[in-house]
């Protein structure tokens, strides 16, 4: 399935958002959005991804 992660298209095996995070090597402490809408961490396990979904994975930044 083709998913756009942080603006870059990539081929993934994951079918849910939490699987995608694991596949991309992210720990749990990130914020996620699918198709420009925020998805809380508790909703990630049940969130099924569809072909062409745009996923944003945001690591908190501290730099100022």
């Amino acid at each position: 399935m083709k998913i756009i992660v942080n603006g870059d298209p990539r081929e993934v095996a994951a079918t849910t958002l939490s699987e995608l995070l694991a596949e991309c090597g992210y720990s749990g402490r990130v914020a996620t959005a699918v198709n420009e809408v925020f998805v809380g961490s508790s909703a990630r396990i049940d969130l099924a991804l569809a072909d062409g979904d745009r996923v944003e994975i945001l690591a908190p930044m501290q730099g100022g």
């Binding site: 720990s27 402490r29 945001l58 690591a59 908190p60 501290q62 730099g63």
Partner: peptide, 13 residues
């Protein structure tokens, strides 16, 4: 949005 700070070292300054 960010419930927890990342573990020290994972979000560099």
């Amino acid at each position: 949005i960010f419930p927890e700070a990342p573990a020290a070292g994972l979000a560099p300054s």
